[in-house]
Design a protein around this nucleic acid. Sequence first.
RNA 1: GCACCGGUGGCGAAGUGGCUAACGCGCUGGUCUGCAAAACCAGUAUUCGCGGGUUCAAUUCCCGCCCGGUGCUCCA
Length: 492
Amino acid sequence: MTLRLYNTLSGQTDPVEPADGDTLRMYACGPTVYDYGHIGNFRTFLQVDILRRFLHLEGVKVRHVMNITDVDDKIIRNAAAAGVPIREYTPKFTQAFLDDLDSLQIERPEVLARATEHIAEMVTLVERLAAAGAAYKTEDGSWYFRLAAFPEYGKLSKKDLEGMTDGARVDVDEYEKDSARDFALWKATRPGETSWDTAIGTGRPGWHLECSAMAMEFLGESFDLHAGGEDLMFPHHENEIAQSEAVTHKPLARHWFHVRFLLVDGRKMSKSEGNFYTLRDLLLKGYKASAIRLALISVPYRHQLNFTFEGLVEATAAIDRLRTLVTRLQAATLADGTTELMQAAADKAEAGYMAALENDLNTAEARAPIFDLVRATNTALDQGAVLAGDRERVLAVLAKFDAVFAVIADHDAQPTRAALAWAQEQGMTDKVAPELLAAQGLSDEAIEGLIAERNTARRQRNFKRSDEIRDELAAKGIVIEDSKDGVRWKRK
RNA sequence: GCACCGGUGGCGAAGUGGCUAACGCGCUGGUCUGCAAAACCAGUAUUCGCGGGUUCAAUUCCCGCCCGGUGCUCCA
C-alpha cells in the first residue's frame, strides 16, 4: 500500500512515490518573516508535517526544503517603520517561527533556505530566462517574465488566460511592461532601499523567483512534490512553474499539494474582523499546544477548517482521553500473555488507521479506529481482561498514531512556559489567562506535597480536609483522579 | 460578474448507490466512588439544505434553487 494524494496539477488522486525510488524530494513554501505566525499559517505547516510524518511511518525517506522569505515589500515596510535594516529586523521573527514549529511538534525540514542567502542562484535564473527569451528588463532596471513565452501558463490553477484581458483590475499603470500580466522577477530599488549589486543590475528578487531558484538549487530541476497553502496556487505557484519550466522544459514538480484555508468562526481570519490569532495568543489564553495541533489537523487538508474555541476545548478533552488510557495501561499490573479479543481489536484499529491516512491523508477518518481501540481497551481493563502482551500491542498502535498525530506524548509544558516568558518580556501579562498564571506558580513538588497531605486526610476519613485540598488545586487548574492504582494528577 | 468548494445529530466532522449514517466533544440517565474525577453501559440524526429527475433502490448520481466559504490582488 502506498499513499495516494490529490494532485492539483493532474486533478486526480495520484500515488506519491519518490522518483528515484529512495528519497521523496519535496519543497514547501515557508513563511515571510515580517511578524509572528498566525494559526492559519500553521494549519498549512501542520498538514505538511502530517504528510512528512506519514511518509516516514511508511518507510519513505524525505528531503524537505522550506524557504524563509526574509526580503519582501512587507518586511521592508515594517523594518523601515521600526527604523532598523531588514537584516536586523528578520532574525527575531525567523527564530519565533522556528520556536512556534517546535511548540506544535512540527518536524524541521531538512533544509531551511533563507532568500537573502541565495541571491546568486536567483540572478543566474534570470539570466537563463533572458537567454531563453522569457525575461526582459524595463527602463527602470526591473526584470519581468514574458508570459507570451510560456503558453502552458495557467495549467496548475486551470485558468484560461484568453478570458483574462489586460486592464481592468490588473495594475497596468505600474511600469512599462509588455503585457499587464507579466510578473516581476527582479525589482529595481530606490536609493536607500535594501538591494544587491548583481550582473543583472542593482535591486532585489521578486518573491516568486526566490522559490524557483531555491527549489531547483536543493532538489534539482524536477522533483517529487511541491506543497503550499491554496492561496499560493495562483499566482505564486503558477509563476514558479513558468520561471522554472521556461528554461528547463521539465516539470518543476510532479505532484502539487495544496492545503485549504482556515476560517475562524466561519469567516476568513483578518485583523479587521478581530478574529486573528497567533499561536502565542492561544497559548496565553491557556490552551495547550497539543490541543491546538489536534484541532488544526483533525480536519483533512482538502477541506476548509472552521477554527473555534469550542474546537480547542474538544481537542483538549480528546487528548486527555488518549493520555489517560496510556497512563492507565502503564500503571496496570497485568499477567503475561495475550488475548484473542484485544489482539484482534488492535489489528483492526491499526489497519483502519493506516488505510485512512493512505487515502489522501484523511485524518478525520483515521482518528475513528483509534478511538474505537481506546474504548475496547478501557472496557477490557474494567473487566480485568487485558494481558501484558495486549498492553504492548495496544501501546504500539497508539505509538503509530502518535508518530503522525504527535499529541499523546506530553510536550505541553515547554511551549506554555516559553509563551509566558515571552509575554512577560513584551510586557503583555494582561493578556494571560489568570488560571495559567496561578498554575504556573505551583511547582510539581508543591502539588505532590498537597496530594500526600490529602491522602493522609482520606485515610483518616477526614473528607472535609481532603476535599478542601482538591478544591484548592482545582482552582489552580490541577485535576485529581483517585484510582485503584493510586492518585493521578494533571494540569488542566 | 466568472470559477471552485461545501451545506450530515446540540457542536465539530467522516462516509457510502442498498448493511444499525463512523469518530470526537457535549448533554441526560445508570454502574463504580466517602463524594468527585476517570472509565464503562444506555439514550441523544426514522435521517444527511430545498425542489425535481435517473434507478428496483439516493444522503451518495444528474438538473435547478437557496445559503455559506474561497479564489480571480499581497496572503499559509
